Simulated assay, not measured.
Amino acid sequence: MKIDLSGKTALVTGSTEGIGFAIAKGLDEAGASVVINGRTEPKVAAAVAKLGPKARGRAIDLATPEGLAALVAAEPAFDIVVNNLGIFQPVDFFAADDAVWDRHWQVNVMSGVRIARAYLPGMAAKGWGRMLFLGSESGYNIPVEMIHYGVSKTADVSLARGLAKRMAGTGVTVNSILPGPTLSEGVAEMLKDEVAKGKTLEQAGIDFVKAHRPSSIIGRPATVEEVANMAVYIASPLASATTGAALRVDGGVVEFIV
Protein backbone atom coordinates (compact mmCIF):
# COMPACT_ATOMS: atom_id res chain seq x y z
CA MET A 1 0.00 0.00 0.00
CA LYS A 2 1.48 3.32 -1.09
CA ILE A 3 0.00 6.66 -0.12
CA ASP A 4 0.68 9.29 -2.78
CA LEU A 5 -0.62 12.80 -2.19
CA SER A 6 1.37 14.46 -4.96
CA GLY A 7 -0.49 17.44 -6.36
CA LYS A 8 -2.72 17.79 -3.28
CA THR A 9 -2.78 20.86 -1.07
CA ALA A 10 -3.34 20.43 2.66
CA LEU A 11 -4.01 22.65 5.65
CA VAL A 12 -3.28 21.43 9.17
CA THR A 13 -4.49 23.88 11.80
CA GLY A 14 -2.55 24.27 15.03
CA SER A 15 0.38 22.45 13.49
CA THR A 16 3.55 24.05 14.80
CA GLU A 17 4.10 21.17 17.24
CA GLY A 18 2.61 18.00 18.67
CA ILE A 19 0.07 15.88 16.81
CA GLY A 20 -0.56 18.68 14.32
CA PHE A 21 3.07 18.90 13.26
CA ALA A 22 3.34 15.12 13.03
CA ILE A 23 0.31 15.06 10.71
CA ALA A 24 1.76 17.89 8.62
CA LYS A 25 5.04 16.00 8.37
CA GLY A 26 3.27 12.81 7.32
CA LEU A 27 1.28 14.61 4.62
CA ASP A 28 4.42 16.36 3.40
CA GLU A 29 6.30 13.07 3.17
CA ALA A 30 3.41 11.63 1.16
CA GLY A 31 3.85 14.41 -1.40
CA ALA A 32 1.26 17.00 -0.40
CA SER A 33 1.93 20.72 -0.37
CA VAL A 34 1.25 21.55 3.29
CA VAL A 35 0.29 24.81 4.97
CA ILE A 36 1.41 25.01 8.59
CA ASN A 37 -0.76 27.13 10.87
CA GLY A 38 -0.17 28.65 14.27
CA ARG A 39 -0.72 31.95 16.03
CA THR A 40 2.83 33.31 16.07
CA GLU A 41 5.17 33.92 13.16
CA PRO A 42 8.35 32.56 14.84
CA LYS A 43 6.78 29.19 15.68
CA VAL A 44 5.19 28.89 12.24
CA ALA A 45 8.48 29.77 10.52
CA ALA A 46 10.38 27.22 12.61
CA ALA A 47 7.89 24.47 11.77
CA VAL A 48 7.96 25.29 8.07
CA ALA A 49 11.76 25.16 8.11
CA LYS A 50 11.61 21.64 9.54
CA LEU A 51 9.33 20.43 6.74
CA GLY A 52 11.25 21.82 3.80
CA PRO A 53 10.64 23.55 0.48
CA LYS A 54 7.11 22.33 -0.32
CA ALA A 55 5.64 23.70 2.92
CA ARG A 56 4.46 27.21 3.66
CA GLY A 57 3.04 28.84 6.76
CA ARG A 58 0.18 31.06 7.87
CA ALA A 59 0.47 32.72 11.27
CA ILE A 60 -3.22 33.33 11.95
CA ASP A 61 -5.45 32.85 15.01
CA LEU A 62 -8.23 30.65 13.66
CA ALA A 63 -10.30 30.85 16.83
CA THR A 64 -11.88 34.06 15.50
CA PRO A 65 -14.03 34.88 12.45
CA GLU A 66 -11.49 37.52 11.48
CA GLY A 67 -8.72 34.94 11.48
CA LEU A 68 -10.70 32.63 9.23
CA ALA A 69 -11.39 35.49 6.82
CA ALA A 70 -7.66 36.28 6.65
CA LEU A 71 -6.84 32.63 5.96
CA VAL A 72 -9.39 32.31 3.15
CA ALA A 73 -8.12 35.52 1.56
CA ALA A 74 -4.59 34.07 1.51
CA GLU A 75 -5.51 30.42 0.81
CA PRO A 76 -8.84 30.16 -1.03
CA ALA A 77 -8.87 26.38 -1.54
CA PHE A 78 -7.49 23.11 -0.18
CA ASP A 79 -7.84 19.46 -1.12
CA ILE A 80 -7.25 18.28 2.46
CA VAL A 81 -8.05 20.05 5.71
CA VAL A 82 -7.15 18.69 9.15
CA ASN A 83 -8.89 20.55 11.96
CA ASN A 84 -6.29 19.87 14.63
CA LEU A 85 -6.40 23.21 16.45
CA GLY A 86 -7.37 22.63 20.06
CA ILE A 87 -6.69 23.45 23.68
CA PHE A 88 -7.20 21.66 26.98
CA GLN A 89 -7.06 22.99 30.51
CA PRO A 90 -7.77 20.98 33.65
CA VAL A 91 -10.26 23.04 35.67
CA ASP A 92 -12.88 21.69 38.07
CA PHE A 93 -16.43 22.14 36.79
CA PHE A 94 -17.38 24.53 39.58
CA ALA A 95 -14.30 26.67 38.96
CA ALA A 96 -14.70 26.76 35.17
CA ASP A 97 -16.45 30.03 34.42
CA ASP A 98 -18.07 31.11 31.16
CA ALA A 99 -14.73 32.37 29.83
CA VAL A 100 -13.18 28.88 30.14
CA TRP A 101 -16.14 27.28 28.38
CA ASP A 102 -16.27 29.93 25.66
CA ARG A 103 -12.54 29.73 24.94
CA HIS A 104 -12.68 25.95 24.53
CA TRP A 105 -15.78 26.24 22.36
CA GLN A 106 -14.31 28.88 20.07
CA VAL A 107 -10.95 27.14 19.65
CA ASN A 108 -12.01 23.49 19.65
CA VAL A 109 -15.36 23.69 17.88
CA MET A 110 -16.12 26.96 16.11
CA SER A 111 -12.74 27.10 14.35
CA GLY A 112 -13.70 23.84 12.63
CA VAL A 113 -17.25 25.00 11.91
CA ARG A 114 -15.96 28.11 10.14
CA ILE A 115 -13.28 26.23 8.24
CA ALA A 116 -15.80 23.66 7.04
CA ARG A 117 -18.14 26.40 5.79
CA ALA A 118 -15.25 28.01 3.95
CA TYR A 119 -13.57 25.02 2.30
CA LEU A 120 -16.07 22.19 1.84
CA PRO A 121 -17.95 23.85 -1.05
CA GLY A 122 -14.73 24.15 -3.05
CA MET A 123 -13.89 20.50 -2.42
CA ALA A 124 -17.38 19.51 -3.59
CA ALA A 125 -17.03 21.59 -6.76
CA LYS A 126 -13.82 19.68 -7.58
CA GLY A 127 -15.44 16.34 -6.77
CA TRP A 128 -12.76 15.34 -4.25
CA GLY A 129 -11.72 16.35 -0.79
CA ARG A 130 -10.83 15.21 2.70
CA MET A 131 -11.78 16.96 5.93
CA LEU A 132 -10.66 15.58 9.28
CA PHE A 133 -11.46 16.66 12.82
CA LEU A 134 -9.24 15.79 15.76
CA GLY A 135 -11.62 14.60 18.42
CA SER A 136 -10.49 12.70 21.50
CA GLU A 137 -11.37 9.68 23.57
CA SER A 138 -12.33 12.36 26.09
CA GLY A 139 -15.36 13.00 23.88
CA TYR A 140 -16.67 9.64 25.11
CA ASN A 141 -14.88 9.25 28.44
CA ILE A 142 -15.63 12.77 29.64
CA PRO A 143 -12.75 13.62 32.03
CA VAL A 144 -14.02 14.81 35.39
CA GLU A 145 -11.12 17.25 35.69
CA MET A 146 -12.02 19.05 32.43
CA ILE A 147 -15.65 18.48 31.53
CA HIS A 148 -15.57 21.56 29.29
CA TYR A 149 -12.89 19.95 27.13
CA GLY A 150 -14.73 16.64 26.87
CA VAL A 151 -17.93 18.37 25.78
CA SER A 152 -16.06 20.25 23.05
CA LYS A 153 -14.57 17.01 21.73
CA THR A 154 -17.98 15.31 21.68
CA ALA A 155 -19.14 18.25 19.59
CA ASP A 156 -16.26 17.76 17.13
CA VAL A 157 -17.24 14.13 16.57
CA SER A 158 -20.88 15.11 16.04
CA LEU A 159 -19.89 17.89 13.67
CA ALA A 160 -17.81 15.52 11.54
CA ARG A 161 -20.64 12.98 11.36
CA GLY A 162 -23.18 15.60 10.35
CA LEU A 163 -20.92 17.12 7.73
CA ALA A 164 -20.21 13.69 6.24
CA LYS A 165 -23.95 13.31 5.65
CA ARG A 166 -24.19 16.83 4.25
CA MET A 167 -21.41 16.08 1.75
CA ALA A 168 -22.90 12.76 0.59
CA GLY A 169 -22.40 12.11 -3.11
CA THR A 170 -19.82 14.87 -3.61
CA GLY A 171 -16.62 12.83 -3.47
CA VAL A 172 -15.70 14.57 -0.21
CA THR A 173 -15.24 12.55 2.97
CA VAL A 174 -15.42 13.88 6.51
CA ASN A 175 -14.16 11.91 9.50
CA SER A 176 -12.95 12.41 13.05
CA ILE A 177 -9.91 10.86 14.70
CA LEU A 178 -9.96 10.11 18.41
CA PRO A 179 -6.53 10.01 20.01
CA GLY A 180 -6.12 8.81 23.55
CA PRO A 181 -3.33 10.04 25.82
CA THR A 182 -0.52 11.07 23.48
CA LEU A 183 3.00 12.26 24.26
CA SER A 184 2.68 15.67 22.66
CA GLU A 185 4.34 18.82 23.95
CA GLY A 186 1.10 19.73 25.73
CA VAL A 187 1.02 16.46 27.64
CA ALA A 188 4.73 16.78 28.40
CA GLU A 189 3.98 20.16 29.99
CA MET A 190 1.20 18.58 32.05
CA LEU A 191 3.62 15.89 33.27
CA LYS A 192 6.55 18.19 33.98
CA ASP A 193 6.22 17.93 37.76
CA GLU A 194 6.57 14.14 37.57
CA VAL A 195 9.60 14.48 35.30
CA ALA A 196 11.11 16.95 37.76
CA LYS A 197 10.94 14.22 40.40
CA GLY A 198 13.32 12.10 38.33
CA LYS A 199 11.04 10.10 36.05
CA THR A 200 11.60 9.93 32.32
CA LEU A 201 8.82 11.48 30.26
CA GLU A 202 7.93 8.03 28.92
CA GLN A 203 7.60 6.57 32.44
CA ALA A 204 5.59 9.56 33.61
CA GLY A 205 3.27 8.98 30.66
CA ILE A 206 2.88 5.30 31.51
CA ASP A 207 2.12 6.14 35.14
CA PHE A 208 -0.47 8.72 34.05
CA VAL A 209 -2.21 6.22 31.79
CA LYS A 210 -2.28 3.55 34.49
CA ALA A 211 -3.67 6.00 37.05
CA HIS A 212 -6.13 7.97 34.92
CA ARG A 213 -6.91 5.76 31.89
CA PRO A 214 -6.71 2.26 33.40
CA SER A 215 -8.81 0.78 30.57
CA SER A 216 -5.93 1.41 28.14
CA ILE A 217 -4.99 -1.83 26.41
CA ILE A 218 -1.53 -0.70 25.30
CA GLY A 219 -0.83 0.67 28.78
CA ARG A 220 1.08 3.71 27.58
CA PRO A 221 0.53 6.99 25.75
CA ALA A 222 0.61 6.91 21.96
CA THR A 223 3.29 8.76 20.07
CA VAL A 224 2.31 11.68 17.87
CA GLU A 225 3.48 9.67 14.86
CA GLU A 226 1.04 6.86 15.67
CA VAL A 227 -1.84 9.33 15.56
CA ALA A 228 -0.48 10.98 12.42
CA ASN A 229 -0.35 7.66 10.58
CA MET A 230 -4.13 7.32 10.86
CA ALA A 231 -4.67 10.90 9.71
CA VAL A 232 -2.47 10.51 6.63
CA TYR A 233 -4.31 7.35 5.57
CA ILE A 234 -7.74 8.92 6.03
CA ALA A 235 -6.58 11.96 4.04
CA SER A 236 -5.56 9.76 1.12
CA PRO A 237 -7.46 8.40 -1.90
CA LEU A 238 -7.12 4.93 -0.35
CA ALA A 239 -9.74 5.82 2.27
CA SER A 240 -12.49 6.69 -0.21
CA ALA A 241 -15.09 4.40 1.45
CA THR A 242 -14.53 5.77 4.96
CA THR A 243 -16.68 8.76 5.87
CA GLY A 244 -18.71 9.79 8.87
CA ALA A 245 -16.47 7.63 11.04
CA ALA A 246 -14.96 8.28 14.45
CA LEU A 247 -11.63 6.48 14.16
CA ARG A 248 -9.96 5.65 17.44
CA VAL A 249 -6.21 5.84 18.03
CA ASP A 250 -6.75 5.61 21.77
CA GLY A 251 -4.80 2.49 22.68
CA GLY A 252 -8.08 0.76 23.53
CA VAL A 253 -9.08 3.21 26.27
CA VAL A 254 -12.72 3.49 25.21
CA GLU A 255 -14.68 0.52 26.52
CA PHE A 256 -16.82 -0.43 23.55
CA ILE A 257 -16.18 -2.43 20.41
CA VAL A 258 -17.68 -0.22 17.67
Rank of each mutant, 00 (worst) to 15 (best):
V107G: 01
I87H: 03
P53L: 09
V72R: 08
D79Y: 02
Q106R: 14
F94E: 15
F93P: 07
V113G: 01
D79F: 04
V107D: 02
F88G: 05
N83M: 05
A116L: 03
L62S: 04
D98F: 12
E75N: 10
W105Y: 15
Q106W: 09
P76A: 12
L62D: 04
F93D: 10
R103S: 14
R103M: 14
V113D: 02
G52R: 08
R58S: 12
T40N: 15
A116H: 03
T64G: 06
V35K: 01
N83W: 01
A46S: 11
I60R: 03
E75Y: 09
V35I: 15
D92C: 10
P53E: 14
N83D: 08
A73L: 07
T64D: 08
V81P: 00
G38Q: 05
L71F: 06
K50G: 09
H104S: 12
P90Q: 09
G26L: 03
L68A: 11
R103T: 15
R103F: 06
L51Y: 03
N37G: 10
K43H: 13
A116P: 03
A95T: 14
A70Y: 02
P65H: 12
G26H: 00
N37R: 07
A73V: 13
S33A: 15
I80R: 00
K43D: 10
V82M: 02
S111R: 02
V48Q: 00
N108R: 06
P42Q: 08
T64S: 13
A30D: 00
G38V: 09
A46W: 01
P76R: 09
A77Q: 13
V91F: 03
K54V: 10
A95H: 15
S111Q: 03
V35A: 09
D102M: 13
K50S: 13
V107R: 02
L85F: 06
G112H: 03
V35M: 07
V91A: 08
S33I: 07
G57S: 10
G38D: 04
P53R: 13
S33R: 14
A69H: 11
A49W: 08
V107K: 01
P90T: 11
G52T: 11
D102F: 10
F93W: 14
L71T: 09
A69P: 05
I60K: 03
V35Y: 02
P42T: 08
T40P: 05
H104D: 07
D92Y: 14
K54R: 15
F93R: 12
V81Q: 00
F78E: 01
M110D: 11
K43N: 14
W105E: 13
F94C: 12
R103V: 13
L62Q: 04
P42N: 08
G31N: 04
I60V: 15
A32S: 08
T64F: 07
V72A: 08
L85S: 10
F78W: 05
